[in-house]
Every structure is written in structure tokens, then in C-alpha cells.
Design a protein around this nucleic acid. Sequence first.
DNA 1: TGACAGATTGATACCGGTCTCACTACGATT
DNA 2: AATCGTAGTGAGACCGGTATCAATCTGTCA
Lengths: 355, 355
Amino acid sequence: MNRKKNSITVADVARAANVSKATAARVLGGYGVASESTRRSVIEAADRLGYQPNELARSMSTGRTGLIGVVVGDIENAFFSRAVRGISDTARAAGLNVVIANSGERPEQEREMVSVLLRQRVAGLIVAPTDDRDVRHLKDAIKAGTPVVTLDRWVPDLGADGVCGGDHAAATEVMEHLLVNGHRRIAYVTAVDLTDGRLSDLSDIPISAVRERVRGFMDAMHGTGIANSATFVRGGAVDSRSIDGIIDGLLTDEQRFTAILASDSLIGAEIYRSLSARGIRLPKDMSLVSWFDADWTRVTSPPVSIIDQPTYLFGQTAVKRLIARLEGQAIPPDQIVIPTPFIARGSTGKSRTTG
Amino acid sequence: MNRKKNSITVADVARAANVSKATAARVLGGYGVASESTRRSVIEAADRLGYQPNELARSMSTGRTGLIGVVVGDIENAFFSRAVRGISDTARAAGLNVVIANSGERPEQEREMVSVLLRQRVAGLIVAPTDDRDVRHLKDAIKAGTPVVTLDRWVPDLGADGVCGGDHAAATEVMEHLLVNGHRRIAYVTAVDLTDGRLSDLSDIPISAVRERVRGFMDAMHGTGIANSATFVRGGAVDSRSIDGIIDGLLTDEQRFTAILASDSLIGAEIYRSLSARGIRLPKDMSLVSWFDADWTRVTSPPVSIIDQPTYLFGQTAVKRLIARLEGQAIPPDQIVIPTPFIARGSTGKSRTTG
DNA sequence: TGACAGATTGATACCGGTCTCACTACGATT
DNA sequence: AATCGTAGTGAGACCGGTATCAATCTGTCA
């Protein structure tokens, strides 16, 4: 047992203060009672020795860790880092600590991270599930007594609360704006891996948030009599190169696209860059809307129209709900929808074909 | 003791497998020896019961938690979130877990967070210290046996390793570029709180990274015979409004500034926005350089010249050094400088006064 | 003066693992 | 046949707290 640190324990303090371990523990742990005089001498001894409580031992014996585990797709993505900030601030205010893990949007890594966190005995989990269809690890966690709140994504039959954006409504709102402006050839670009980059069925999309947006997109298209709108969805937008490819595809398509929806701000930025590089002017030649109010959307000219996802609030809300669960509230798990309004800025205008 | 979770322990597995607790523990913990047959039956029993090791108890008894604590200024800042990603990826690969905390760049919150992490018995700390002059909490941690690596900032007398950028060199490089292009009236804008927003002494800057950059800035200015360069440093750039104020100040100053250095990418973005809003064109009317290669710097027109801080690498390097310390390497603590090259893009050009 | 309630305090089991040490069984060595 | 080495196993201490319960000490009241 190579215990490197010779830390001071309650027993040491007790000895120094000439009281029993139990009494010292009561004073230092802030539970039970002690006379004012012993309390003082214990505290004095603790200060003198530099006692620091061992949270591990405390958790061990109480069975509660004050830790909440968070699994996000990628902390480097501002969407998640802002949510993590919301989670972190809110948790801290409630005296909880936060352990962060990345899934890299890969199901097996998500499972691994959840398992690691459970072994760490986190009190609860906030997870942005990578794949709706494989949530057994989350079900198991819930069954074993660790409450789960899903972030940004909603899995109905999971039995966990979910905090998400109003994805279908936002898509509907954007589409209305675009349709009113005469757009008909509108593309939806997502990172989701679709066969050949094309969508054959909505259920191919494993992330509810994206699925709902695409559903809203297709519903709106359908409403204007466009039946083949599934062909307007492009998947696999994972990096610069793939996005350049998608943009090339859109620009040379026989459907002369006039507007593009970017499913997240990373994709949005790359699309913007790709369009600029090709000399396409916004909004004259093309309209662009991106999900998430990233920094970059305000410094482009024109600034980019966005769907504002207040992910700090997502995180905050998720923690609050988690805390409610930890306190044992037995309300049925449900979906908390946070409005994600469309904010029109300069990158969207009248369709060039009707202008 | 309201132990909510009825988790399976080694004792349960041992009973089910008809062996002693010690033997089951040996098999499940992967230490010691056991015959092939008992090993099989223990594993079978563990699987059947759904045994999940309790990492807490394990840490309790071994004295090591595979946790590393990270305290950053703000995870929401891409500078840090990218570093955190580097830390997280590298730590994970080494079998360590990461606990993140925010200091909000406030010394007392930093102290609080460090204390919380120490109570959590993290194996090591990676901290971006908010104030060089008050690092007693870090010294105490080191003295108590928890290695510390500072991130982005270097505190010489701390006795900890530090991973930082080549701030002085980068400032020198940028200044050379600007001076060659005829700029003489160059402002340095930082979030650091200076009295009246003006710099009276370098030691007023509590963050080494910023101090070194300003030193490089002033050295270069001095090299061209400009003696009052301290008046070209503006502090307090903490939000949209303050930055608008600073820009107004610079534009109306009797010194007709022709170039601005932004000390981080948040400031850079706001300055860009503020300049655009005022109709100032880059690089014709003003040159702009920002530290950190944030997303937004590539989508502006012109794209913004930057000092590239590879913070993913910062994080990665910090973890590697921390692991070396954890393994007991007794090399003297030192500063690891990671080059942060200047990358000229469209936002910097010839000074309008010499053009 | 003796009984009794309330306030303090101490002894000790316990949480779920790891780890030391002693003990057994058995083949190899002499 | 006696001795030895070794693989395998079990008993139990331990980590640093918390929690339970009994013991002691007051002061008060009948």
C-alpha cells in the first residue's frame, strides 16, 4: 500500500485535541452535537494540523458522492461547452461537482464513459446520447438507481428526463421564413452518416434532435407540394473536405439550390467558408441558416441567420431536474422543451429565382 | 445511512462463487493469483450478478484515485475548451479521469476549486492560475504531495511545471511584421483590469502570459524609439460594452492608431465587430491581430491574422508532464514552451499613414 | 436524597475494496 | 521418508470517514 500522502485524518485531530475520534468527527463533519469548548479545541487542532477532509472516505461511508457525471459529444464544440458551463455553474451552486467525459459521438465510447462514471459512483448522469436506438447502458444506470437526464436529445422509452430544444418548431419557423421568401430548393446538411450521404428514411437518423429538425424540414417542403424533399438532405458533413464535397454537389445539382440549413455551427462555419471561397454571395446567390448562435455568426458579413439554442440554459435546466430526482421527486420522467427561436440576420433573403 | 443503491460487492460475488472474499477480490481486481478454475467461476458469478467495481472503495484502500483535477478560467472559451479536450483525450488514454472546474478568472474561486479537488483526492492538478502573485494554495498542494502543472501561465517560484506559449517571442514576431509594414501607433488590448484601463507597471499584470506579450510589445516599441508605449496598452476589455468603449477611445485618441493586438480571441471578435460596426475597414483603415486561432477568424473578410496557440497540444503536454510526475520522475520543475507562431492573414497590411 | 431527563462523549461497527500473512496441499529434491 | 519450494486460498487488518448506541455527567424535581 504505497500511500504517498501523509494526510491528516480525524483520528490525528482527535488525538491532538484530546477527544475521541467520534467527537472530532462530529465537529469536523458538521453533524451531531458537541459542547462549545470541545468544538473550539477540535477546530483549533484541525487548523493547526492543516486537516483536509477526505471526500472519498466520506462518500464511502455515506454512500453519496456529490458528483454528477456529464457525457457530451465534444466539449470543444461551443454548443456543448456552453452547456457544460451551465451545468458546472448550476451544480457548483448546489454543492455538486462535475466530472466531464467526451463520447466523440461514438456509441461505444459513450457506453465506456458511462460505465466509468458509474464505477465512480456519480450521483446522477447528464448525457447527450449518441444513438437513440442503443440506450441499454442508460436504462441499466436508471434501473440501478442513478438518475439520468438526457441533454439536447430525447429518448421516449428510456424513462429519463430530457432537456431539448424545440427542434421541429424551429425547423418549421425557418422553413416558413425561407418559403415566404420564395425558396423551394432548400438543402439540409448534417453530420449524420447517411448511406451515400442521402436520406432514405427518417429512422436512419439516430439523434432525435436532428431527426426532428429534418422532419420539420420535410413537413414544410411537403406542405408546398414538394414530395422528394428527402433527396434534399445531405449527410456526412464531418469535416472541411466532406463539406466542400457537399457544397460542390449542391452547386452542381440539377436542383438549383437557393438555401442551405446547417445542422450545427461547425457545419455552418464550414459551409460559410466553402461558399465564400467559391465566390457565392449571401444572401444574393444563396441563403444560409445555421443552428446555434456561435461567435462566428456575428462577425461574418452578412451575419448569419441562426436558430438560437440557449445551451447554457439547457445545462442549467438539466442539473435542476437531476437535483429534483436526487431529492427523490417521483414525478414521471418527461421532456422539457426549451424554445429555440429562429433569428433572421443578413444571410437569408429572397430566393434569387424569384427575386 | 441511506444507501440508496443495493450494489453488488466482492463479498456477494465471493459467496455466489463459493470462495473467500480475498480470492474473489484477487480475480476481480486483477491482482494476485488464482487458479484457472476459480477464476472462471468468480468471473461467471460476477457476470451473473452484474458486479460493478466501486472505484471509490478501491481508491480508498489503494490511496490513489485515477483522477486529475483541471481548473481553467472558463471552459466556454474555446482556448480552454480545446485545451480541456487535449487534457481529456490524453488522460483517458492513460486511464485517468478528469474533473473540470472553472475559476472564472477569479482568485478566490480558483482557491475554492483547488480545495474542492484536493478534498476529492485528485492525483494531480492542471491549473491556469488567475494571479501569479497569490499561489499559496498551489504551493500547499505541491507540498502535500499533489503535483501541479500550470497551463498557459508560468509561475517561476512555484515549483511546478508549466506549459505555456512563447508569448514574448510571438509578440516580437507580430510587432516585427507590423513595424515593417509601417505601423507605429499600435494598441494592445487585454481583459486584465488596469487602473483607469492604463498600464503603469508591468507587474500590474497578474498573468504571466499577458505580461510576457506586453513585454514583447513594449520591447519592440522601444526598439523603434517609442518610449511611451505603456500608454498604448488598454485593459478592462471584458465585454461588448467595455470593448466598444476602448475602440472609441482608440479611434479618437490623438495618437492615430493604425493597428490593434487583441490579447485573446473573445476580445478579438468583439474588436472586429466593433470596428465593422463603425465602418472601419481592415486592413486599409486598421490592422488587427488576435491571439488564438478561433473559428471566427477564418470566416471574416478579410480573415484575421492570428497568433496560433495550439492549446490542444498545451493540454496534451500538461497531462504528459503530470503523468511523469505521478510516476515519480524527480527532474526539477520547468517551463515547457510551446511555439505560438504568428500567422499573417488579410487583416494586417501596410499602415495607412505610410501606405 | 434519590430518580430522571437532557446534554456530551466514547467505543465500535461499517462502507467495499486492497493487501499482508499464515496455512494447506502437493510435487520435487535429497 | 523427511524436507523444501511453491501455487492457491482464506482470515482479517486497514483506508478515513459516518452512524449507532451505550456510558457518563449534569442539573432539576419529587
